[in-house]
């Protein structure tokens, strides 16, 4: 059981939200898999920010425009409205100040797309409920004291944050443990219980 059985399952879900030829900033772009997918499928004009130098070097070797940087400190250097889409995939929970990062995304991009593991998934709840300890699994291998994921949230938590920063949810997609999109008409409590990952399309 895990909250994160395939952490990159969200890539295609994100790609489906982005129109052709868009200008895209991917914050926390890792080895550039999503940017490359978007370049090949959607012919986007893409840029990336990645904290690990190894990831950056892989991106540059792939021919992507990526800089080494930290979402918490470096987004301030991007002008308002400089991108059509500002993406943050599977990175929100590792930032020191998720609210500030979200606000920057909404400022830099006309749209923001955020994907994250849902800490409200039933497997997390049962792990905590029955074992009384923070969940540690094959796919979420960190102990509470060494995890880079310092700000986990649930889907409902995130909806509340969007409300607080004045972001409009244009679209939300939850992905279940089998990597399948869950129906759109489900109520939030259902997604919050069965959605393993969530992808939100937002705008100011």
């Amino acid at each position: 059981m895990s909250v994160n059985s395939n952490p990159r399952i969200d890539l295609q879900v994100v790609a489906d939200l982005i129109p052709d030829n868009a200008k895209v900033l991917d914050v926390g772009c890792s080895d550039g898999e999503l940017l490359e997918l978007l370049r090949n499928q959607k012919n986007i004009d893409g840029r990336g920010v990645e904290i690990s130098q190894r990831g950056v070097n892989e991106c540059v070797a792939r021919g992507l425009s990526v800089i080494q940087g930290d979402a918490d400190t470096d987004l301030v250097y991007y002008p308002d409205n400089s991108f059509d889409y500002a993406l943050l995939s599977q990175t929100l929970q590792a930032t020191r100040n998720p609210r500030a990062v979200l606000e920057h995304l909404l400022r830099i991009g006309e749209h923001a797309i955020v994907s994250f593991p849902n800490f409200g998934h039933w497997s997390v709840r049962t792990s905590l409920f029955f074992n009384g300890r923070m969940p540690v699994t094959k796919d979420l291998p960190y102990s509470w004291y060494d995890t880079p994921n310092i700000h986990f949230c649930t889907i409902r938590d995130f909806v509340v944050l969007c409300d607080e920063v004045g972001a409009k949810v244009e679209k939300a997609v939850a992905i279940n443990a089998n990597g399948q999109k869950m129906g759109f008409s489900m109520p939030w409590w259902f997604w919050n219980f069965f959605g393993q990952q969530a992808v939100f399309l937002l705008r100011r």
Binding site: V60, V66, Q68
Partner: peptide, 13 residues
């Protein structure tokens, strides 16, 4: 970045 240029940045260890 501020001028919108396509830029990569690599720091070699």
């Amino acid at each position: 970045n501020a001028s919108g240029a396509p830029v990569s940045f690599v720091e070699i260890e």
